[in-house]
Design a protein around this nucleic acid. Structure first.
Lengths: 157, 157, 157, 157
DNA sequence: TTTT
DNA sequence: TTTT
């Protein structure tokens, strides 16, 4: 009876750390920046960056460890979790993390968002196959073309 | 170039707290539970509850303060933000909150999600002892309570 | 009491069409491809592409008309709407579109996803500022470093 | 490299139809209403309802068939797909559907969203005449009815 | 602290 | 066709 979903598009602040539990389960951690642009009271554009702690497990952890790196732009879908831990004084602390269910690399293949690209690697142009789309949800009778927008219409909302 | 979105469906743990900044801006705080059901290693069904700190501002704060209450099921859409504060030892602490952009009450109108609705209408305390909340994601040293909202603060965005 | 939300990350099949209503309101239309990779019964990787009709209004339409083009990768957030129209035989037809509320260009600035980049345009490298992140939601006492993952832990779910 | 996600909270217009492919795979279809409230030019509150075609497969189809019914409020997460079919004149038509990945019943358990719950339990028809649905996004020429699911079809993915 |  |  509940939903707990986070959707982020941002850039990695560092390369992911890939580790393993004693029983051999892969876990990757990385931080992801999202930046919001807003205008302050004086009308000046300001940026505010949020840093999100991302955790991935198992196969997704392996993929993150292998393909992601500092600066890379990714789409992350996951759930919010708060983890309790003790600091060195034995005081309870809480850390909020996003446990990733899905990750999609953005930008073009071979694209780097930052960091030092490995020499001799990445950077080619992959070519984008751009066949004309059959518009989804549209219906064409024979040669009839549905007007996707009728300039005589007014806005319906 | 980024997206920071949280989507939650859950139940309020308590009635929202509605307060105002010195300049009169409304702010509502409440915690929202989402519960996940999973099977443990022995195949037994287990529940895991996450508590989320929700903050709403301005008109949405007023609506939350007026219509939401303990147990109510809501849809929340918002963004993740981490707020820095100092505990009484002057140590930096961080609390992660969801700043709500949208709220939808779920279930049917007139429906109550929890507590014993006081006869003759809402507005009672529902028999709930209003102890100070231990906010998820927050860390309290000893008896120190993080101020979930400091009325002397101005809006940080 | 309801939610109608679509989230897409995909590539434009063509340049957007930007038009205006008689009263001068801007409207942009474009189709967006999302591609899913799956394995068929024989274990072979297959792609399935969906084409989505996107509509943007007003300022967002102007931005789409100005900055988007064939092949560009974008994030779209919007709502599903079904529009009724008549074909040349007077038969009712229905077209489902996504009315965009938000659009985010993905990939790096100056990046082209396809099509013929205009001569003399786009293509510089913007440089990515990569200062180390202060991990969101993490708390550090003095020099104490929270272990982001304790290898002695087992998976908590 | 793409994302195709739909998130809906709405009410079922009818009981789901649960059917099976020749090879025994369960498929459930139902339509879901989302209603938006807005103010028109004269400042009057207006409602606009969208109808969404939902399809669920396999175990989720069984659950939908068993627990959902007309009027029930649900959360649906899924992906947009457009299906091609021929009307009786052999003309290509397209119908947009949401293939559900996740469904959450909303409101409290035992709660009914519509109709008069038949005394002595669920399972009745709730007094609803089961006329064939005009599926949103579908186009019917004259009396021709698009088959919302052809039991001779196999699963297209 | 909620809810099922 | 739902719901508020």
């Amino acid at each position: 009876m509940s939903v707990n979903k986070v959707i982020l598009v941002g850039n990695l602040g560092k390369d992911p750390e890939l580790r393993y539990t004693p029983s051999g389960v892969a876990v990757a951690n990385f931080s992801l920046a999202t930046t919001e642009t807003y205008k302050d009271r004086d009308g000046n554009r300001q940026n505010k960056t949020e840093w999100h702690n991302i955790v991935a497990w198992r196969q997704l952890a392996e993929i993150c460890g292998k393909y992601l790196h500092k600066g890379k732009q990714v789409y992350i879908e996951g759930k919010l979790t708060t983890r309790k831990w003790q600091d060195r004084d034995g005081v309870d602390r809480y850390t909020t993390e996003i446990v990733a269910d899905q990750m999609q690399m953005l930008g073009r293949a071979g694209e780097e968002g930052g960091g030092a690209p490995s020499p001799g690697g990445r950077g080619g142009n992959d070519g984008y196959a751009a066949t004309p789309p059959a518009r989804s949800g549209a219906a064409a009778v024979d040669t009839y073309e549905e007007p996707s927008f009728n300039p005589d219409d007014e806005i319906p909302f």
